[in-house]
Lab assay of single mutants.
Amino acid sequence: TYVQALFDFDPQEDGELGFRRGDFIHVMDNSDPNWWKGACHGQTGMFPRNYVTPVN
Rank of each mutant, 00 (worst) to 15 (best):
D10G: 05
S31M: 07
A5L: 00
C40Q: 03
T53C: 12
D8F: 01
S31D: 13
N50H: 14
F47A: 02
M28N: 07
F19K: 02
D8Q: 05
R21N: 12
W36T: 03
V3N: 04
I25A: 00
T44A: 07
Q4A: 04
I25Q: 00
V27P: 01
P11R: 05
E16I: 06
V27H: 02
I25P: 00
G45P: 00
A5W: 00
V27T: 01
N30K: 14
Q43R: 14
G18P: 13
G15Y: 10
F7L: 14
V27D: 02
T44G: 03
D10K: 13
H41K: 10
G22V: 03
K37T: 11
P11I: 04
Y51Q: 05
P54F: 08
W35F: 13
C40E: 01
R21L: 06
R49Y: 05
D23N: 05
P33N: 06
P48H: 07
F24C: 09
V55Q: 15
A39V: 14
H41W: 05
V3Y: 14
G42L: 04
G38D: 01
M46P: 01
I25T: 02
I25S: 02
D23V: 01
N56G: 14
V55Y: 05
A5R: 01
H41E: 10
V3C: 15
T53D: 08
A39M: 13
N50S: 12
F9P: 03
F47I: 06
D14G: 09
L6A: 11
T44W: 04
D14V: 12
E16N: 07
V52K: 00
T44L: 08
R20W: 06
S31I: 04
R21T: 08
E13V: 10
H41A: 07
G45H: 00
Q43G: 08
T1G: 08
D32P: 05
G42M: 05
N56V: 14
G42I: 00
G18Y: 10
F47W: 00
F47D: 02
P48S: 04
A39T: 15
V55P: 07
G15E: 09
M46I: 14
M46Q: 08
N34P: 01
Q12V: 08
W35Q: 11
G22W: 05
D10C: 08
F19R: 02
E16V: 09
R21Q: 15
